[in-house]
Simulated assay, not measured.
Amino acid sequence: MRTVQIQRSSAAHNVATTLPGIGVAVLIAVLATMIGRLVPVLGGAVPGIVIGVGVAVVVKPGELLAPGIRFAGKYVLQFAVVLLGTQLSIAEVGRVGVESLPVMLGTLTACLGGAWLFGRLLGVVGDLRTLIGVGTGVCGASAIAAAAPVVGAVSMDVAYAVSTIFLFNIAAVITFPLIGHLLGLSQQAFGLFAGTAVNDTSSVVAAATTYGAEAGQYAIVVKLVRSLMIIPICIGLAALAARRARSGGALQPAAGRPSMITQLSRWVPWFLVGFALMAAINSLGFIPDAAHPGLSTASTFMITVALSAIGLSTDVRALRRAGARPLALGALLWVTVGLTSLGLQWLTGAL
């Protein structure tokens, strides 16, 4: 009985500590949504992240807000992605996955090759180059987190890579919808562009839903399939680490590295599994058509809340500490992947 009371007290404490930060993110999201309605081309997500970054630069949120901001930036976004699955069917997920493979594999190849070449030219070598390349080519911070223990990266390299990726996530959310409108991309073409050329899931969702609901649905499926690419990449990195360890090379596996099964469970995020399950439930007709608009509106607002929180959590000093060369590498890879995505769509007739 006492154990139950302690658990309830702990749960109540956790809720109480997250509410202030979530409340601030929601307030910013409400303001951002109003701006998005006044300027539809922006949507709510872009103003949300811009306002959040502005607040973080002027008045860095303190410890009182930190737990709620972290919760909103991570879990609110993940639940929003799950809700997006209610707008699709399994047949659509399979079709989009197959259609996107040529562009997806092409951008991944260009990114990894570019990381090797540009990294050598800029003097960014070793684990940092690997992490920035994998983060840009696959799925941002999630890919970095998955690859870091495989290659035995030190925490400083991980922090630099995540900071670099984060900067270009923000840049993508702001600039990609504008680029899409300037090029006159269709909803499907922009969804493929965002799904293959933007790093983190949060930024893919934000950029694509800003462009349109159809683009958002298409992009998240592309991103789901793209995220699975981390599995063969990490297996390849593990094999390379083992070979270099045997030959006494510099690349060493991390001490006490988790088993391959444990790592596999981490490489496929639960919310992407939830997204697929929601699509399956919708395919079976368990979600009424009348519920779709409300679910779509809810997921869009949750995305705006999450992006507002991500903006609030921006650490500008960490970006400065990363230095110019990692940022230059991230910029070159960001441009390379974007141009490759658009170029391959043009070559394959998708544009």
Results as ranks from 00 to 15, higher is better:
Gly73Ile: 07
Val93Phe: 06
Val221Ala: 12
Gly73Arg: 07
Pro326Trp: 13
Ile51Ala: 10
Ala318Arg: 14
Leu182His: 11
Leu327Asn: 07
Ser299Met: 14
Ala147Tyr: 09
Gly152Gln: 04
Leu31Trp: 02
Leu342Thr: 05
Tyr218Cys: 08
Gly256Ile: 10
Pro61Tyr: 01
Thr201Lys: 08
Ala328Gln: 13
Trp267Ser: 04
Ala172His: 08
Val26Pro: 05
Tyr218Thr: 15
His13Gln: 14
Ala29Trp: 11
Ile22Phe: 05
Ile303Gly: 01
Met302His: 07
Gly274Thr: 05
Val222Asp: 07
Asp200Asn: 01
His13Ala: 15
Leu333Cys: 10
Thr340Cys: 10
Ile310Pro: 00
Ala16Gly: 14
Ala255Tyr: 00
Ala145Leu: 15
Ala245Tyr: 00
Pro47Asn: 13
Ala45Met: 15
Met278Pro: 00
Ile231Met: 11
Ala16Ser: 14
Leu277Pro: 02
Gln217Ser: 12
Ala56Met: 01
Gly68Gln: 08
Ala279Tyr: 03
His181Pro: 01
Ala115Trp: 01
Gly140Cys: 11
Gly54Ile: 05
Asn169Arg: 00
Thr17Ser: 15
Gly330Trp: 14
Ser100Cys: 11
Leu272Ala: 05
Ile90Pro: 02
Ala276Phe: 07
Ala145Lys: 14
Gln217Met: 06
Ala241Leu: 01
Ser202Val: 01
Ala215Met: 06
Ala242Cys: 05
Leu342Arg: 03
Gly323Lys: 11
Ala161Ser: 15
Pro40Asn: 14
Val335Thr: 12
Ser186Tyr: 07
Ala80Asn: 03
Val162Lys: 01
Leu101Gln: 07
Val98Ile: 13
Gly126Phe: 04
Gly343Ala: 12
Ile90Leu: 15
Gly54Thr: 03
Val57Glu: 03
Met1Asn: 09
Pro326His: 11
Val134Trp: 09
Ala254Tyr: 04
Ser89Leu: 08
Gly48Ile: 02
Ala254His: 10
Gly126Leu: 13
Thr348Glu: 02
Ile235Ala: 12
Gly180Glu: 10
Val82Lys: 14
Leu77Asp: 05
Ala206Tyr: 01
Pro288Phe: 09
Gly23Val: 04
Thr33Lys: 11
Arg2Trp: 10
Leu112Arg: 07
Ala194Trp: 04
Gly85Ala: 07
Ser89Arg: 12
Phe301Glu: 12
Ala242Asn: 11
Arg37Gly: 11
Thr175Pro: 00
Ile261Gln: 09
Leu307Cys: 04
Ser247Lys: 10
Val158Ile: 14
Ala239Glu: 06
Tyr160Cys: 11
Leu342Ser: 05
Arg70Pro: 00
Thr297Gln: 15
Leu105Asp: 05
Ala254Lys: 15
Gly285Ser: 13
Val124Cys: 12
Lys74Ser: 13
Ala242Ile: 04
Arg120His: 13
Val222Trp: 03
Arg317Glu: 14
Pro288Ala: 09
Thr201Pro: 06
Gly97His: 08
Thr210Cys: 02
